[in-house]
Amino acid sequence: MTLMTRPRTRPSARQTLKQRSVWTYWREYLAISPFFILFAVFGLFPLVYALYLSTVSWDGLGKMTPVGFDQFIRLFTSGEFQSALSNTVVIFLTAQVPVVVAALGAAALLSSRRLAAKGLYQTLFFLPQVTSIVAVAIVFQSLFSNEYGIINSGLQAVGLDKVPWLSTEWGTRLVVSIMIFWRSFGYFVVIFLSGMSSIPPSLYEAARLDGAGSLRIFRSITIPMIWPTILFVAVTGTISGFQIFTEPQVLTNGLGGPNDSVVTMMFLQVRYMGGTTQTVPTDLGFATAIGWGIFAVLILLAAINARVMGKRRKEAS
């Protein structure tokens, strides 16, 4: 692409890298040190502890019982983690993936210089982000309630049947997905917008003069130019999407919906930590094993992500 004006490889840097002693880079190391120092102080010990905790059974108050690898065997055999994983995947595919794609499109629309009232739109899309989750839960329950919900009243008013939103597995999953979409849309829009502001307006103008249409500009300028941001959203969006918890928790009053249909991996972990409405006996050992299970899934996804995005990047540029 000729539009990519900036060199992304830095040939001179590689040469100097070999010649200088490590100590001459002290400024660089100092600048990135806070993260590693804080992680060493506040992350490492808890991490070791979390390894230990996964070999015991503990309700968080009484005595710990050493159980060896039982918690991991339970993780693989009880079926709870597997069903939580599949719930998570369903919610991820129906909520997180569409919202990122939609937000990318909306950001492209909202960053166009000619659009009137774009400030108003940006603000309105951002509102769900700041609306307290307590209020959001009340609103969504009031909207989707089977008997008393505004949506079902509306459906009946126009002669349609009521939809059993929150009393069926798929209905509940759907409402959770809608809620996630609604809540995180503005978040992704802001991230994409901040990336798009690094694109020099002159690039757009040159392309327009060349007669390129909006779609072509989006594909050939916007996407390649904000590729690092897209990568960032792909990685963090996958991590947060697979750790979804708040929406199912508040929508189902901490119970997990019909047949635990919206119990995600994180929900399951918090449930065993005693943090949701108690439908299982608290066991921090099992909760920790679930935590390691989530970790394994995320690492696997990160590897896949890196491959896919790496390939895309080559295709794009």
Partner: peptide
């Protein structure tokens, strides 16, 4: 740094409070 984002931080509550 990236890998730390996937660590099971939820269960670190107990030791972190101890720190």
């Amino acid at each position: 740094l990236l890998a730390t984002m996937t660590l099971p931080t939820g269960v670190m509550l107990v030791p972190t409070l101890q720190i």
